[in-house]
Simulated scan of single mutants.
Amino acid sequence: MADDKLQLYLTHRAALVDYAAPIVGCRARAEDVVQEAWLRFSRHDDAADIRHPASYLYRIVRNLALDQTRRSATEKAQPGGDELLAELPSSTASPEQAVSQQNELAAISRALEELPERTRLAFEMHRLGGFTLQHVATHLNVSVSLVHQLVHDALRHCLERLEGEP
């Protein structure tokens, strides 16, 4: 079973990094998230029944990426950090833009959590993981047109939640 886990990880590693990068904001942190996900995934009890190991691995990556984003936001709010940050040249968004982007990311994360599992997974695999509709359809054992509809529904749901955010 350990070899199966390793093969699954190696097969999906690049897509997992691509999946985590937009959430954490850079590829280097995404690499760290994927590595941590592998450690957690590999230590998982082989006797436990995981019906969709790839989906489980994507969920670990998503959760770790969101945790890291929250942790980074908290670390930025540390006392004395403003003076240090003010001395560094900025190549990123303004503080207002960063807060707005973090709020949008949090709203999208909440919106994705509200979705049914299959809809969320189809969206994450296609839009965040870079998988083709055909690959997602094969993975979920549904038609390509249904995957297209699921992704569309997820996008619409996220947009509605973003428009409803203050």
Rank of each mutant, 00 (worst) to 15 (best):
R13G: 03
A14D: 10
A15V: 00
A15H: 13
L16S: 01
L16W: 00
V17H: 00
D18N: 05
D18P: 02
A21N: 03
V24M: 06
A28S: 13
E31T: 04
E31Q: 13
D32N: 15
V33W: 04
V33G: 01
Q35M: 13
E36I: 08
A37K: 00
R40E: 05
R43K: 09
R43P: 00
R43Y: 00
D45C: 10
D45M: 09
D46A: 11
H52D: 13
H52I: 03
P53E: 14
A54T: 08
S55M: 12
R59N: 13
I60H: 00
V61I: 02
R62F: 12
R62T: 00
R62Y: 14
A65V: 04
L66G: 07
D67P: 11
Q68M: 10
Q68G: 06
Q68H: 11
R71V: 14
T74W: 09
E75T: 07
K76A: 13
G80P: 09
D82N: 05
L85C: 01
A86G: 06
E87W: 12
S91K: 05
S91E: 15
A93W: 15
S94N: 12
S94L: 10
A98V: 13
Q102G: 14
Q102N: 15
Q102K: 14
N103C: 15
A106N: 08
A107Q: 11
A107L: 06
R110P: 05
A111C: 11
L112C: 09
E113I: 12
E114V: 02
P116Y: 07
P116Q: 12
R118G: 03
A122W: 04
F123P: 01
F123C: 03
G129K: 01
G130P: 09
F131Q: 03
T132G: 10
T132M: 05
T132N: 04
T132Y: 05
H135K: 04
H135C: 04
V136E: 01
A137L: 06
T138V: 07
H139C: 01
H139S: 10
L140C: 04
N141S: 10
S143D: 10
V147F: 09
V147E: 07
Q149W: 01
L150A: 04
H152I: 07
H152S: 12
D153E: 09
A154G: 08
A154S: 06
L155Q: 10
R156C: 03
R156A: 07
R156K: 07
H157A: 12
C158R: 05
C158E: 02
E160P: 00
E160G: 11
